[in-house]
């Protein structure tokens, strides 16, 4: 189409290309998701690998998750006491640490840390398998690669993210507590009073709902980019980066979504 090469049309063209790429990605994602759901039937293929993935995604991620949340708890307590001066009672430090850890920072920071750790490793592993034809090899050996590779990872993510995040929240709150009584001039009963005062059982449910959705996003996005890797080692690198960037963004978007939908 020689008549359509005017330079002024270039921006429109790039918008169109971006839109098409997005639509294609959504389509491929949906296709992958549908395939994974169908692959659930092949229990014999994925069930033996759940444990390994639960270990990889859950247990092996604990150190980073706990590290992140511990320091978050400490900083929260220090900053809360710094901010809350004047007429606000001290026990609000406990309230602030508890509420923010449970509702927001515990799930989101852990989710982001795991997006870097779990999402990247899934994308890199599946990407390497894709470019070295290992995924094709699986197919030729009559394995559904979705059942063999994607289902155990996503399932382990759904199961283990809440587990890791629950522990991370606990460590964060305990770290805030210890900080309050050791570094701040504050008693344990006050911290606990503040912690309990505005606590609502729903907070925990909310955190768990978030965690499950983050688990789905991180493992699903990692699998998606790994699965659609093209172009050798460079392609694997690109897939890994994209997986981390996209799942990070999706975590934040989902975070806002749940806050709007459930609170």
């Amino acid at each position: 189409m020689p008549g359509l090469t005017h330079p002024a049309l270039a921006p429109i063209e790039s918008v169109g290309r971006a839109t098409l790429a997005l639509v294609r990605a959504i389509g491929q994602g949906g296709y992958l998701a549908a395939g994974a759901v169908r692959a659930l039937r092949s229990t014999d293929i994925w069930a033996p690998h759940i444990l390994t993935q639960m270990y990889q995604i859950g247990v092996a991620s604990l150190p980073i998750a706990l590290f992140v949340s511990m320091f978050t708890g400490i900083v929260l307590a220090l900053q809360a006491s710094y901010t809350l001066t004047g007429g606000v009672p001290e026990y609000f430090v406990g309230t602030l640490v508890g509420k923010t850890m449970i509702l927001e920072l515990g799930p989101v920071l852990t989710g982001l840390a795991l997006a870097g750790r779990v999402g990247a490793s899934i994308a890199a592993e599946l990407g390497t398998m894709r470019v070295t034809e290992q995924i094709d090899a699986l197919e030729t050996l009559a394995y559904d690669p979705l059942a063999y590779l994607v289902v155990p990872r996503v399932a382990a993510g759904l199961l283990m993210f809440p587990v890791v995040i629950a522990l991370a929240i606990t460590i964060g709150v305990v770290a805030g507590w210890v900080t309050s009584i050791s570094l701040l001039d504050m008693g344990s009963p006050q911290f606990v009073k503040g912690l309990k005062m505005f606590f609502d059982g729903f907070d925990v449910t909310f955190a768990m709902i978030k965690s499950v959705s983050f688990g789905l996003v991180v493992t699903g996005v990692g699998s998606f980019f790994g699965f659609h890797t093209v172009g050798g080692a460079e392609g694997v690198g690109r897939a890994t980066t994209r997986a981390v960037v996209v799942s990070t963004m999706l975590i934040l978007v989902l975070d806002a979504f749940w806050a709007a939908a459930l609170l």
């Binding site: 444990l51 270990y55 859950g58 247990v59 606990t170 925990v204």
Partner: peptide, 30 residues
């Protein structure tokens, strides 16, 4: 190896369940 992993996974899952339930009950004042 597998047994150790099973053990670890089981331990982490149970610890998290206990912490969540006990923590929630405690914070609710029960």
């Amino acid at each position: 190896m597998t047994r150790r992993r099973e053990l670890l996974v089981g331990f982490v899952v149970l610890a998290s369940a206990v912490v969540s339930v006990v923590g929630t009950l405690w914070l609710q004042g029960r």
